[in-house]
């Protein structure tokens, strides 16, 4: 079957099997390997991406569900100025260790930070409830997100292709 959707702000069309996993589509077809497979069954959150602004597990999302959607991956986040600055600060704050869970975590965090005017630790923990860090770096992760939430220039995504920041970044 054929589906059309936007990927990191860019319209794309894909021909494939209806049950193909979004995770494989991203990694193999689009070569966007920032999205990681951890468990393949929706437990660990490593493969988290944003779909229409919501955090979803790409290992449990089949191609058949993608038509007309807006998808956003860690590569899209890095491509924006504020997103890239957030990732740099997140890393500087000790938020990464082995790194396998990190792309999923920063997307969950970016969604939370974009939707929440006043962030707090409980809210951060709830936002990350679906993301496992096996290196157990949660404290540094939560602190890094909390610090980001206190910034005026924090990561802020409209998560929409018409988001001026996204559009500007892609065109430049």
């Amino acid at each position: 079957m054929r589906v059309a959707f936007t990927l990191n702000g860019r319209p794309v069309e894909v021909e494939g099997q209806g049950d193909e996993r979004l995770l494989d589509l991203l990694r193999r077809h689009f070569r966007l390997t920032g999205t990681k497979e951890g468990c393949g069954e929706g437990e660990c959150g490593a493969c988290t991406v944003l779909m229409d602004g919501a955090a979803v597990l790409s290992c449990l999302t089949p191609l058949v569900q993608l038509d007309g959607r807006e998808l956003f991956t860690v590569e899209g986040l890095e491509a924006t100025t504020r997103g890239s600055q957030f990732l740099e600060r997140f890393a500087a704050g000790g938020g990464t260790q082995c790194g396998a869970c990190t792309p999923g975590i920063v997307l969950s965090a970016a969604r939370y930070l974009s939707e929440t005017p006043v962030v707090d630790r409980n809210g951060i923990r709830r936002a990350l409830a679906g993301n496992i860090c096996r290196c157990t770096g949660y404290e540094a992760i939560v602190k890094a997100i909390e610090a980001e939430g206190g910034r005026k220039d924090r990561v802020q995504l409209a998560l929409h292709p018409s988001d001026p920041e996204l559009t500007e970044e892609r065109e430049s």
Partner: peptide, 11 residues
């Protein structure tokens, strides 16, 4: 900061 931190966070 860890030298590999930003690369990991950015995927």
């Amino acid at each position: 900061p860890r030298l590999d931190g930003h690369d990991k966070a950015a995927g």
